[in-house]
Amino acid sequence: MFPLSSTIEMSAGLEHLAAILLGFGFGFALERAGFGSARKLTAVFYFYDMAVVKVMFTAIVTAMAGLFVLSTLGVLDLAELYVEPTSWAGAIVGGLVFGTGFVIGGYCPGTSVAACATGRLDGFAFLGGMLGGVYLFAELFPGVDAWVRGTAIGEVTLPAVTGLSMGWWVLIFIGILGAASWGMGLAERRFAGLKPEP
């Protein structure tokens, strides 16, 4: 039955409408979390406000549990979902570069859109820089692109690698989230003094 993209023929217009509606929820949630603000986002790196990790982790666990439950009930075919092929080198090198840009620029690509939508001029600056970076990457480093794609080894998921089923991983992630939320509460109290003046 699900995903709908595999069971019904969607017109281009319907697909675009679905993208706009899903995007609407995405942007609404990001802004509600405070992720239209670079100061709220970078606070996580100084431990005085861990909202970024709380939101991301809860979102991942929620979606993961939903995917697991729906596939167990037989209404969702997990094999039909797109899984980005894993390139260890791409993930690690790209992650290090991306993380550096994140803390310097104060946003990530999605959250910079939320920043622009609420009038943050630094959000527009990040967006422009991001577009420039992506453009220059294509122009200057097509070799890096070919190398990363060459090192991709296909779909690699934790259940496939470890032999532990998805249900166990959902339980493990819920456990980690519980422990982490306790730890994050401690960290926030310990580092509350770092919070800059408004």
């Binding site: 290090l96 550096t100 840009g101 994140f102 990040f126 820089g129 970076g133 992506v134």
Partner: peptide, 8 residues
């Protein structure tokens, strides 16, 4: 930062 994040 945006440019660096874009490359990453």
């Amino acid at each position: 930062g945006g440019a660096i994040a874009g490359v990453g």
